[in-house]
Design a protein around this nucleic acid. Structure first.
Ligand SMILES: [Mn+2]
Ligand SMILES: [Mn+2]
Ligand SMILES: [Zn+2]
Ligand SMILES: [Zn+2]
Lengths: 153, 153
DNA sequence: ACGTAAGTGGAAATGATTTTCACATCAAGC
DNA sequence: GCTTGATGTGAAAATCATTTCCACTTACGT
């Protein structure tokens, strides 16, 4: 009966220091966003919603969440960093829509194994990986069709 | 008998427009670098070597080479873009040393298959992937050991 | 309640990349 | 070789995300 929209947990806040009102607002907005969003965009959204958190604080909170493993980070093509509240306790990879930010967690077992093997056989230390998939989601693809290459039926 | 260091080919230049002296210098320096290097660093190197190419031109040339598929791009952790002359005609992925830029092409068959499958089953259009491995190469790891956690034998 | 370490926010600094635009130079076509 | 228009160049300024500063709050253990 209870709806199962994602929620912020006290757990999230405990990991990054003191529980301030600002952090609660940022975390709340991030959870509600349900997808990848930039610090700038999240800040605008907060201000628009009458929750005037400083931009520096938004950056600090998102960075702290990411470091604590409570948020995932995605580099978009312009180099901007997008954040998303991490649904579970484990590291994930996503397929992200370049138009609207919609993100879909993808099954990444094979890549993890691949990356681990390379890490082991390379001789390199502290090997990390960054795997990002991006594309245009069905909705955005449909919208895009109605504008250019107007292939009449 | 002929050494087989990588060389710039006329082919590389043909793909990006006119063959100017500046482009030849940038391409030459990129090839000689034999690893990932930033536009800024490459520019400094050119200036130091008495080949005063403008920074804008370095950026333009590297970007053009990347678009033409003659260079690979790597986003380092600070968001800076590193370039490397692409050894062959095909798309590759690398394991890059975060300390010195040394890069090792890695066998990426499994990831390509994985990414292709997701692209096909996701419903997304124009799916692209970015896969980056980074770590500390043996040489740099050795150097790092002689400085901190001095665990006496 | 108090004291204080931790957090906040507006403004300024940073730093990579892009843009501008007056000037130089490729590469055709004669 | 010489003219010429499209293309390329570069110094400086603009952009823009992110970080740093620092005087002022605030959370929270005592
Ligand atoms: Mn992974
Ligand atoms: Mn690939
Ligand atoms: Zn979309
Ligand atoms: Zn190294």
């Amino acid at each position: 009966m209870a709806d199962n929209r994602p929620r912020a947990t006290v757990h999230d806040m405990a990991l990054i220091g003191r529980a301030t009102q600002q952090r609660a607002m940022v975390l709340g907005a991030l959870v509600v966003a349900e997808g990848f969003i930039s610090a700038q965009a999240l800040h605008k959204r907060l201000v628009a919603d009458g929750s005037p958190v400083g931009l520096s604080t938004v950056y600090r909170t998102l960075t702290a969440l990411a470091e604590a493993g409570r948020a995932d980070v995605f580099r978009d093509t312009n180099g901007e960093r997008l954040f998303r509240h991490r649904p579970g306790p484990d590291h994930r990879h996503y397929l992200v829509c370049t138009q609207c930010g919609l993100s879909l967690p993808v099954e990444s077992g094979p890549v993890e194994k691949w990356a681990d093997r390379i890490a082991r056989t390379s001789g390199f230390a502290d090997v990390r990986h960054s795997v990002e998939l991006s594309g245009v989601c069905p909705d955005c693809g449909r919208k895009a069709d109605q504008g250019q290459t107007s292939r009449s039926s």
